[in-house]
Amino acid sequence: MLKIVGNDKMPEKRLKATKADIVLAVFFIAAAAAVLVWSFGYFGGSADSVVITAHGETVGVYSLSEDREIVVDGGSNIVVIENGAAYMKSADCKNQHCVLHAPIRYGNEQIVCLPNKVLVEIEDNGESEIDTVAN
């Protein structure tokens, strides 16, 4: 006989949230909020170029001010630069998340194609958006 372990009198088996569960939930929400705060600082700087990487190797660095189309990895992905923003025009992967992604134009913003290991990332030039506006 296969032993079925545990019995229903054990506290952790009852189908009711414990105090520890609530504490853990609060901790997770705080962690998510911390990530959100970090994101606000990390993204959104000014930028003028985009870096494309495939399988960990740099395909190229391209200026955002020059409209063009870049074929990545023999056609697995096609990146388009248009009106100062970059987007994924096509990808041969199944989920198409990267193609559906909105165009990116600000520092550190990225479009990722996980199945093909392709990363399109805006290069943050270190200046904040406010400074650029002031200039």
Binding site: E12, A20, L24, A25
Partner: peptide, 8 residues
Amino acid sequence: AKIFSIIG
């Protein structure tokens, strides 16, 4: 830890 329910 035995202080968390199956939900937690």
